[in-house]
Write a protein that binds this DNA or RNA. Structure first.
Lengths: 105, 105
DNA sequence: ACGATACGTCGGAGAATCCCGACACGTCAA
DNA sequence: TTGACGTGTCGGGATTCTCCGACGTATCGT
């Protein structure tokens, strides 16, 4: 099926990002998660598979449903990659703020 | 042509991430950037186009070359998206550290 | 035991992505 | 002016992504 397995690719899709956001509030079953999208349930199921391969979620069978849990750990890799860039955009924000302060003291 | 325009998709490709890393050390011309990849120059040029559409780089014509500059600002969007998750992976790291401390005091 | 429910996965269609060689255009050096 | 250099973009092939309906399997309620 050729499922992407790295965190960056997993985050490239807006549906998958929304799924992770939903799971922040606690574990949820697939049908429950699928409800918020204009998508077939199998489509959502496949997005969950991508998240599983990236180790961003964990499955917990509960009767005939499966509850998905957020596993945020791999997001640290993205955060770490971002870190050396942080200095650059903060600098730009600072100059912007200084400029506005000058115009409107 | 259908070039992705959002930051998350721009970061999904390892070549584009490497390009941004290189640009952290200062502006560079295309041939110079292309040198570090086992890729044709047009391929690199198209990756740069994606980064341009995502506003992650800026062009500066200099004679017959074009120097590309890093524009880190859009990365703040990724950082902001990540922020509500930070608490979760930090918690896990903390429990892991506590566990190791117990075993090896 | 039987039908309904919750879910994964498969086959395949359509679109997007990635890469290349070919070509076009502006700039520089001689 | 002419030829080499640096780069963008186009046409097209190969692969991957995204999505759907159909089907299989396990679990639950009755």
């Amino acid at each position: 099926m050729a499922v992407p397995t790295d965190v960056f690719s997993a985050l490239a899709n807006p549906v998958r990002r929304k799924l992770l956001e939903s799971l922040r509030e606690g574990p949820r079953a697939v049908n429950d998660l699928a409800g918020q999208f204009a998508l077939s349930r199998p489509a959502v199921s496949e997005h969950l598979q991508v998240l599983r391969h990236a180790h961003l979620v964990r499955e917990e069978p509960r009767g005939r449903q499966r509850y998905y849990h957020l596993v945020a750990d791999p997001l640290a890799e993205v955060h770490d990659w971002l870190h050396p860039f942080e200095h650059y955009w903060r600098e730009r924000l600072r100059s912007l703020r200084d400029l506005l302060d000058e115009e409107n003291p």
